[in-house]
Design a protein around this nucleic acid. Structure first.
Lengths: 110, 110
DNA sequence: CCCGTACTTTGCCATACAGCTATATAGCTG
DNA sequence: CAGCTATATAGCTGTATGGCAAAGTACGGG
């Protein structure tokens, strides 16, 4: 699953936000968070973590039975970059568009 | 459907990219693009446009039978902002994380 | 070495969603 | 106004995905 799909789910976004906030978080804490906010069970949370892992958004390392998760900024940068690029266009031509809309109102061409 | 879900689909992303590139594009052109790139039919493309509209990513105006679509930068900015915020954290603490990983290797605690 | 803790995996169901064809709507054009 | 063009809607279907409970795996402690 790609990054766009991975962050399409609010549960997974909330997990990403927690990781961004705390840096390192165990699977258990993330599951608890998901339980509180969305009322989902631990195995479901684990499934979401798997999706995040496969999308490359997070990595996990074992600490005894605990799995410690952390963000990988790469895919998020890609996402931010894509979204930013789509709007950068408008910065350049926004006034042109506005002029066009104005012209539409008065109907005259200068 | 929210912005995250809307851009989760590659067909819709390609439409957004085209709109970012051209500014104003008719439904027909967008359908043609989707047909070429993804082999999908006109009604399916129309459905995708509806999703983009409902997510607030695009607006459309009528020009005779044509529907002219254009991007609304607002939701895209939100998206870019969200993704950027999740990574901004790392900028601040990245070196701390790296130190932590180094310590893990040698196993000693200072 | 067996039990509890911490997760992941498996197998199952329901719903959401993308795709299709066929049809409806709307506006130009002859 | 008939018919073509442009687009949207309706109705249907297959598959993907999210949710659950139950079972499997792995580790540390008594």
């Amino acid at each position: 699953m790609d990054v766009f799909q991975a962050v399409a789910d609010p549960v997974r976004r909330s997990m990403v936000e927690r990781l961004a906030d705390r840096g390192e978080v165990t699977a258990g804490e993330l599951a608890e968070l998901a339980a509180e906010r969305f009322g989902i069970r631990q195995p479901t949370a684990s499934k979401h973590l798997k999706v995040l892992r496969e999308a490359g958004l997070v990595t996990s390392t074992a600490d005894a039975q605990r799995r410690v998760y952390r963000l990988d900024p790469g895919p998020l940068d890609e996402l931010a970059g894509w979204a930013a690029r789509q709007t950068r266009f408008w910065a350049g031509r926004l006034d042109a568009l506005e002029r066009h809309l104005e012209n539409d109102h008065d109907g005259s061409t200068s």
